[in-house]
C-alpha cells in the first residue's frame, strides 16, 4: 500500500468507462485547485526572484558585453577585434590581457601589469592556505569537543563567536589587533618579533588569512560536530570489539564515516574563500600595495568606485565560471542529503 500513500491526488489520466465517469476524470478538480493554490503560494517568491536574482543574472550577462558607465551612459556594445573579427568582448579582453605569463609572469609578482591576475593570485593564495587549514582545524576542534570534556558549550561558543561577526567588525577589530601598537605586537615584543603586520605588503595577505581562519575554523567545527552526531554508536562498539584503540577508531571509523561532511565542507570553503571580500575591505581596503586586493574587492572597486559596470560584470562572470563548478558539486551534495533526511 505504501506505494500509493505518498501523494495527494496526482495527475489523473483520461479514463476508460462510461461517458459519465470519463467526465468525472477530466473534471479532476483537486488538480486544478492544487495548481491554483500552488501558484498563488509561490507567486511572491517568483516575483522577487525574477526581479532581484534571475533578471539581474541575465542583465549582468548582457552588461558584460557592453560599455557601461554610470556617468557616461549605457548600452554601447564593447567592440574589439579578435584575430580580425569584430566582437563585443572588449571587457573580457581588457580584464584578461596581458596574460599572466607575459612580462615574465609580471602580473603575478606585481599589481602594476594586470590587476585582475594579481587579484587572482591573491585569491588563490588565500584559498590554498585557508581552505585546508580551516578544515583540518575545524575537524580537530570538533573532535576535541565531542569527548567528555567539561564546559563543552562554553568552548563551542568561544570558537563559534567570530562566525557571528560582520565582516566589517572582524576586519576593523583585527586591524587594531595587528596594528603597530596592537595586542599582537604587545605579546610578540618581548620575543623581539614585533612587526607592522597589517601595514606591510609582505604580511598583509597572511594576516588576512588569519582572520579568515578565525571565522572559518568555528564554522567548520559546527558542521563537523553535526556530522559526528550521525555516526552510529554501534560502529565504535564494533571497532572496540575488533580491538581498535582510540586513534585507530578515529582513523577507521570517524574519518571515513564523515565522507559526506568532508565533501560538503570542502566545497563550501572553496566557494566562500573565492568570494572573500568584506574582511579584506574592512581590514586593509585592498592594500597595502594591493596585497589584499582579492577578486571580489577588485570587482567592487571597478563597479562602485570607478563605475565601470560593464567591465565589472565581465569580471563577475569570470568569477562565476570558477565558482559555478564548485557550486554545482555543492548543489549535488545538498540533493543527496535531501534524500537521506
Amino acid at each position: 500500500m505504501s506505494t500509493f500513500d505518498g501523494g495527494i491526488g496526482s495527475r489523473v489520466v483520461g479514463a476508460v468507462g462510461s461517458a459519465r465517469s470519463r467526465l468525472a476524470a477530466l473534471a479532476d478538480r483537486p488538480t486544478t485547485e492544487n495548481n491554483l493554490v500552488g501558484y498563488l503560494l509561490v507567486l511572491p517568491n517568483v516575483v522577487v526572484f525574477s526581479l532581484f536574482l534571475l533578471g539581474p543574472i541575465a542583465y549582468a550577462f548582457v552588461l558584460s558585453f557592453q560599455e557601461w558607465n554610470l556617468f557616461l551612459g549605457t548600452g554601447e556594445p564593447a567592440w574589439t577585434e579578435v584575430f580580425g573579427v569584430r566582437l563585443p568582448v572588449a571587457n573580457y579582453l581588457d580584464t584578461l590581457m596581458p596574460l599572466p605569463w607575459e612580462n615574465d609572469w609580471g602580473s603575478i609578482r606585481s599589481p602594476s601589469y594586470n590587476l585582475w591576475w594579481f587579484a587572482v593570485r591573491n585569491t588563490v593564495a588565500y584559498t590554498a592556505v585557508v581552505v585546508p587549514v580551516q578544515i583540518v582545524g575545524g575537524f580537530l576542534v570538533a573532535l576535541a569537543l565531542d569527548t567528555r570534556i567539561r564546559g563543552k558549550k562554553v568552548f563551542r561558543a568561544a570558537y563559534f563567536m567570530p562566525v557571528m561577526l560582520s565582516a566589517a567588525a572582524s576586519g576593523v577589530i583585527w586591524r587594531w589587533v595587528m596594528a603597530k601598537n596592537g595586542v599582537l605586537n604587545e605579546l610578540l615584543r618581548p620575543l623581539g618579533l614585533a612587526y607592522p603586520w597589517a601595514s606591510s605588503p609582505d604580511t598583509a595577505l597572511a594576516a588576512l588569512m588569519l582572520i579568515g581562519l578565525w571565522g572559518g575554523i568555528g564554522f567548520n567545527m559546527i558542521l563537523y560536530l553535526a556530522g559526528l552526531q550521525n555516526i552510529p554508536e554501534e560502529l565504535y562498539e564494533a571497532a572496540r570489539i575488533d580491538g581498535a584503540d582510540g586513534w585507530q577508531r578515529v582513523r577507521h571509523v570517524t574519518w571515513p564515516n564523515l565522507r559526506n561532511t568532508h565533501f560538503f565542507v570542502t566545497v563550501l570553503a572553496i566557494i566562500g574563500t573565492f568570494q572573500v571580500f568584506g574582511i579584506a575591505l574592512a581590514f586593509a581596503e585592498g592594500g597595502p600595495a594591493r596585497a589584499t586586493t582579492t577578486i571580489v574587492v577588485l570587482i567592487y572597486e571597478t563597479a562602485f568606485v570607478e563605475s565601470s559596470f560593464g567591465r565589472a560584470a565581465s569580471m563577475a562572470f569570470l568569477l562565476f565560471a570558477v565558482v559555478f563548478v564548485f557550486s554545482y558539486y555543492r548543489y549535488r551534495i545538498q540533493q543527496q542529503q535531501e534524500v537521506e533526511y
Binding site: 500500500m1 505504501s2 470519463r22 476524470a25 478538480r29
Partner: peptide
Amino acid sequence: PSGCGKSTTLRTIAGLEAVSAGA
C-alpha cells in the same frame, strides 16, 4: 497484501483521491 489497492480504495471513498473512472 501491501500494494493491492485497499488503501487507495478507502481514500477514494474518503475523497482524498479523485477516481480516474467510476462512481
